[in-house]
Design a protein around this nucleic acid. Structure first.
Length: 154
DNA sequence: GCCAACGTTGGC
DNA sequence: GCCAACGTTGGC
């Protein structure tokens, strides 16, 4: 099993929005970065666990846990000229972008602000906290994942 | 709103 | 294939 951190802007789609979705499930559409796509395409598996991170907001941080519930499949928005995520270079024969479906597992006992994560010696190597990191999907180690769940209970 | 960091594009 | 210019991300 793999562990991931996925960023979402809460004013676009928050963890509460995911909880309120039918079956607490949503496609993770709109990834248009190759590194993030490659993680999804090459490494994500059903059952992988996700830390749901709120970015570009007053207090950025981790809100909840979710789970990958589908294999990667073509993101339909790349074919839709009406969509913000439309990619004119993509076609059915040349799928450029994929996505997975995710399902909320549970909200954390408390919201974990970025500033608090930065204070944790055990998380100092976490990719999220490295300078200049802008990836919207990134791997998290098992140890980091467990530590974060424990931190939310403290 | 600023700006550092970094990914992408496109001319050569 | 290099690299300057440009665009985007995201914390502050």
């Amino acid at each position: 099993m793999n562990y991931w951190l996925m960023k979402s802007e809460p004013h676009v789609f928050s963890f509460d929005n995911l909880l309120a979705s039918p079956e607490q499930t949503s496609p993770w559409e709109g990834i248009r970065n190759y590194q993030a796509r490659n993680f999804m395409r090459d490494s994500m598996k059903k059952g992988d666990q996700i830390l749901y991170y709120h970015s570009s907001t007053q207090v950025p941080g981790i809100a909840g846990v979710a789970e990958v519930i589908s294999k990667p499949y073509p993101d339909p928005s790349q074919f839709n000229p009406e969509s913000d995520y439309y990619d004119p270079k993509a076609s059915q024969d040349n799928v450029r972008w994929v996505m997975v479906d995710i399902k909320a597992v549970r909200k954390l006992e408390r919201y974990l602000p970025l500033a608090e994560l930065k204070e944790q010696a055990k998380l100092k190597d976490m990719r999220l906290l490295q300078k200049g990191n802008r990836l919207s999907i990134m791997p998290v180690s098992k140890e980091e994942f467990r530590f974060i769940l424990k931190l939310a209970k403290s």
